[in-house]
């Protein structure tokens, strides 16, 4: 009888779930935000005062502002790094687990940086 080895469950569901959630944010939320925040005042949908620094920073550093950080920075980061990781594999530039560590590691580090800056804004 041929030797057998156990099927090993892939850890890809974690990265793929973050990638998928990030994809929804990149495809739906970010274009909507760009329309609202960039073209809003120009089209007269928003007054420039509504986007004043005080107002926007108060909104961002509200406890629910963490949702904005998650949807606009953290999930899109994982989305982008997942694409880059698989792109490197497709181009046969990197097959190693080092590439995986670098890709998802940088997403984790940049996410922590974003969360840290947000916490700094909330509490300082």
């Amino acid at each position: 009888m041929a030797a057998t080895k156990r099927y090993q469950r892939s850890d890809e569901p974690i990265w793929w779930s973050l990638f998928s959630a990030g994809g929804v944010c990149v495809a739906m939320l970010i274009p909507a935000l760009i329309v609202l925040l960039v073209f809003g005042p120009w089209l007269g949908l928003l007054s420039a005062e509504a986007l004043s620094y005080q107002r926007m920073s108060a909104l961002l550093y509200h406890p629910l502002g963490v949702l904005f950080i998650g949807a606009v920075i953290i999930l899109p980061l994982f989305h982008a790094m997942h694409r880059i990781h698989h792109g490197l594999h497709d181009l046969q530039w990197a097959h190693s687990s080092l590439a995986k560590w670098l890709c998802y590691g940088s997403a984790v580090l940049l996410s922590l940086l974003a969360l840290g800056l947000w916490l700094l804004g909330v509490f300082v």
Binding site: Y7, R9, S10, E12, H86, D90
Partner: peptide
């Protein structure tokens, strides 16, 4: 499912 769950199962598809 174990084969599908593995790296060479559904997760090799991009």
């Amino acid at each position: 499912q174990p084969a599908l769950n593995s790296k060479n199962g559904v997760w090799s598809c991009t």
